[in-house]
Write a protein that binds this DNA or RNA. Sequence first.
DNA 1: AAGTGCATTGCATAATATGCAATGACGGCC
DNA 2: GGCCGTCATTGCATATTATGCAATGCACTT
Lengths: 255, 255
Amino acid sequence: MHDSQEPRGPVETDKTVLRIIQALKDEDGATVAELADRLNMAKSTIHRHLTTLEQSMYVVKREGEYELGYKFLDFGRYVQTRSEIYDLAEPRVQELATETGEAAWCVVEQHNYAVYLCQGKTPQAVQTHARIGKWEYLHTIAAGKAILAHLPDEQIDDVIETVGLPARTPSTITDRDELEAELERIRNEGIAFNDGETVRDVRAVAVPILQNGYPVGALSVTGPKNRLIGDKYREDIPNALLGTANEIELRLTYS
Amino acid sequence: MHDSQEPRGPVETDKTVLRIIQALKDEDGATVAELADRLNMAKSTIHRHLTTLEQSMYVVKREGEYELGYKFLDFGRYVQTRSEIYDLAEPRVQELATETGEAAWCVVEQHNYAVYLCQGKTPQAVQTHARIGKWEYLHTIAAGKAILAHLPDEQIDDVIETVGLPARTPSTITDRDELEAELERIRNEGIAFNDGETVRDVRAVAVPILQNGYPVGALSVTGPKNRLIGDKYREDIPNALLGTANEIELRLTYS
DNA sequence: AAGTGCATTGCATAATATGCAATGACGGCC
DNA sequence: GGCCGTCATTGCATATTATGCAATGCACTT
């Protein structure tokens, strides 16, 4: 079974089952009929894939609906903690959150996307769009721009070519030249700012974490626009982030 | 391709790709050759599955090795936070850890196994075998026993029949009658204890979280044997757990 | 009891996953 | 630089199986 709108993969059935897994997440659980409808496939085919996933313990059937199971929690936790900067970043983003009174994040890049790896929380922090595990366009978040600024040129080209520069808000950078100028500025100043480019009324500050000049991640602090202003936005948070990134970089160098 | 040692699933290719995913985790990344060896399959077949997974962004190729990607972090975080008791348990296990000075856990059951859902930490707590996302035999951990004690008889039978009662240590309960007696005691007292049944020299205390009499999870506190002794083990921790579980149960009832 | 809608199973065949063998790529050794 | 060995990748033929249709099972409603 090959969906003609998409390039043919080496193993088409793998793509089918991954598509079903993604649909179960997108629909937050679903019946056979709903999935068949959504994916435009026969109910019997959907049913057989689900049964295989259930027998393999990746999926549970509950009250007529199929849902992703905790096997994914095992895998999710595994990929998080095996990341080489997780152990260094996790306690430190918590400190950053405490210090700034805002949510702090460690973000990494994979497959030309930014992924939120871990979060520092504090009671005063306001919940924004960001979530552990969430994938975002690199160019639309401060941490992503901090990473982009230090990627090899060929990879920047690849990002623009394969992902593009989709707009998330009217403030998002969608022009290649404009992005290049922003990345150049970030390289010079060492700090990336985000002013409503992901979600309106949300600001962020970010710095890269570099290992041998390569951006292995980024740290950021995000918060509502009305709180990230003045010296806090332009001086205090940047300085805290730079200090922490530097500490992590030293740890990476001598380990 | 069907491995004759295992029952044939409705979609055999799904099982193949899931097996490859599991092997990537077990080997903490692997080359085509290593996976082919481990799974007793042709290199070309392994390569095609990996290429499909990579193109779908589930896997990354790094320095000749393939590794699970952060897509699993997205799924892992999703299944964790969608759990109906996660939001109630997460802040409370943190309080329990602070209160007891030991690691605290919320554990759930799925496919007849116990799964560690979330953890409360404190600087003094000692790291034991438990990990977020880890699957354990129900009968070998206190939280699992607390859940087992309240499962319907048919499901208890199913657990014993499909999973069995494997020993983790010389202290593990491996006899059905002995387990039945232990579950009866847990139902009467409302508390489950674990004394070296998972890992030697580790103790735990646990209570179930019941919704309409059904165990939707359990809370536990674990620590080294030399710290979980006397009143702390027998009275203080149990009382704290009971209080918290009761609070969660009330929240579940009126929500 | 009949009707409806969804889930599940049987069957035939179209589609494709598979392994072998060839080829490409890379690193080490002489 | 050439040769060798090992691993990764691709072409090809075919054995295997994923697929959709149709029938059947199941649960709920009237």
